[in-house]
Amino acid sequence: MAAISSDNHGLRLVVRYAVLTLIAAIFIFPLVFMVMSSFKPDLQLLRDTSSFRAFLPVGDLSLDNYRDAFTRAPVATFVFNSVLVTGLTVLLSLLFCSLAAFSFVFLNWTGRSVLLSVILATLIVPFETIAIPLLLLVSKLPWIGLDGFQIGWLNSYRVQIIPWIADGLTIFLFVQYFKDLPKELIEASRVEGASWWQIYRKVVMPLSGPVLATAAILKFLVMYNQYLWPLIVVQQESYRPVMVGLQYFFQLDTAWGEIMAYLTVITVPVLAFYLVLQRAFIASIASTGVKG
């Protein structure tokens, strides 16, 4: 058996790479299909789906779908709205959730474990179950802004951002990460006379790169893919995000080529964001695996 195993080392390597390549292809092919289809007219696109041509840049290729997509819908506005809402929510979420987690892990106050349990329990509540009560709430909330005092948050950026800043998963990620930080560092800082704010800002956060990246990417994906919430709280086109905008292309005759062009365009910010944080994200996942 040993001899066979040794002789087959090369074969095993080939099989392993073949399997890995196949798995990679399963993930990559939909993206390749999307990009390739975005350059094809509808009829050709539909006909190509029955063959491998769907993944190849063959046939009548042009940028017409991109031109038509930008004509059909205010794509730039949708992308801007989504990037703005997502970016602000991610930043505020990292700040507030890390502060909450810092309090849960390092500060000693009555009821923190109960409150943390309650927050973690919200993880099992689907958003759909609270969407309507939340809608009724935000439609009655007061606000003072540049336009003065007003009742109701509908049709605004704030209604898409504020309810999503704090969430159980992000707090949980920070709590777990902070628990593994060396306690000696915190105690030494306290002995040196550092305030809790200074410890948070100058000791804990500089060590939290991996969890920041993980939380940011997870939050980014949730926010960038928002559909139901903006659908029910935003009626004005000028505030609509990309996922609601996708519906513009489902007409009586669905514009498949334009849909692929639109999807390609709105995928760019996601890829860019992931590439920027890729190293920290992988480091975070890898370190989690070692601990596990």
Binding site: I132, L135, L136, S139, G152, L154, L231, I232, V233, Q235, E237, V244, G245, Q247, Y248, F250, Q251
Partner: peptide, 19 residues
């Protein structure tokens, strides 16, 4: 104007929110 696919949901939500 609203996308047709989500128009009915928008109306129901607006009715609930009173707008």
């Amino acid at each position: 104007s609203f996308p047709q696919e989500s128009y009915n949901d928008s109306i129901v939500a607006a009715a609930l929110a009173g707008n």
